[in-house]
């Protein structure tokens, strides 16, 4: 396969960026998107040119490192996949692919396709935890949890923190991300004692970081590689009103 790649290049956070166009030959359909970029970099280095910087690590869709905006879609056009699992068989020979970094005020570009997502960590630091220290836990089965709730908590706990929801949202809102964590703890009895403090703190931090508000468009849900559901946001809202 032969591809034309238009990739955002930006030397560092302070520099002005621009799109650079590359022609890449020898792309195999069974490559993953990041392997395709690795091939591009290999070619560029051999030509003595600057490679493209991008985050990637586990290559199995779980670490949340990778993430780029591909032809108008965060993580590319296939649902439920991270960039690292996106296979090149979803692209056509001769296709032009435009690759951009996540865009949001709280996600400044660090270099090329790498953005700083520490704002998401700061929201977690604000309250995304249950305050039990090592050694203080009761016997695990002392507190039974309804299986249905436990399963729902798990479904929201699978968030990988990649930021695709923010990238997809027209408002650059982090509500799906926050709601996933809030939901996980709200659904478990272990999380109830500090549910109010948690939701207040996390929402305040989310606003402080400069994320937009939720317009319930559902773009986040459709682009979430872990298919975290929109009704988590309804639960987040509910939890928030309860905490007022």
């Amino acid at each position: 396969m032969k591809l034309k790649l238009k990739i955002w290049k930006q030397k560092n956070a302070a520099a002005k960026g621009r799109f650079e166009t590359y022609d890449l030959d020898g792309v195999a359909p069974e490559m993953s998107f990041v392997e395709m970029l690795a091939l591009l970099n290999q070619t560029l280095i051999q030509q003595g040119r600057e490679p493209v910087a991008f985050d990637h690590d586990c290559h199995e869709g779980i670490c949340g490192s990778c993430g780029m905006y591909i032809n108008g879609y965060p993580h590319g056009p296939v649902k439920g996949l991270t960039t690292c699992l996106l296979s090149m068989r979803h692209f056509k020979d001769g296709e032009t692919i435009v690759i951009e970094p996540w865009r949001a005020k709280p996600f400044p570009v660090v270099k090329d396709l790498i953005v700083d997502r520490s704002a998401l960590d700061k929201i977690q630091v604000a309250g995304g935890f249950i305050s039990v220290s090592a050694g203080a836990a009761p016997e695990a089965n002392a507190l039974p949890v309804r299986k249905h709730n436990s399963d729902l908590a798990f479904d929201s706990a699978v968030c990988i923190g990649c930021g695709a929801c923010v990238a997809a949202c027209k408002n650059a809102s982090a509500m799906l991300f926050v709601s996933a964590k809030i939901s996980q703890y709200a659904l478990l009895p272990q999380g109830r004692p500090e549910a109010k403090e948690r939701v207040r703190a996390m929402i305040a931090e989310m606003d402080k970081q400069g994320f937009g508000s939720c317009s319930n468009t559902g773009a986040c849900e459709s682009q979430c590689p872990k298919q975290i559901k929109l009704f988590n946001i309804a639960r987040l809202n509910r939890e928030y009103y309860k905490a007022l």
């Binding site: 879609y73 965060p74 435009v98 027209k170 773009a219 459709s222 682009q223």
Partner: peptide, 8 residues
Amino acid sequence: KVRNKSET
């Protein structure tokens, strides 16, 4: 640069 095509 490319219009956001996320399904909404």
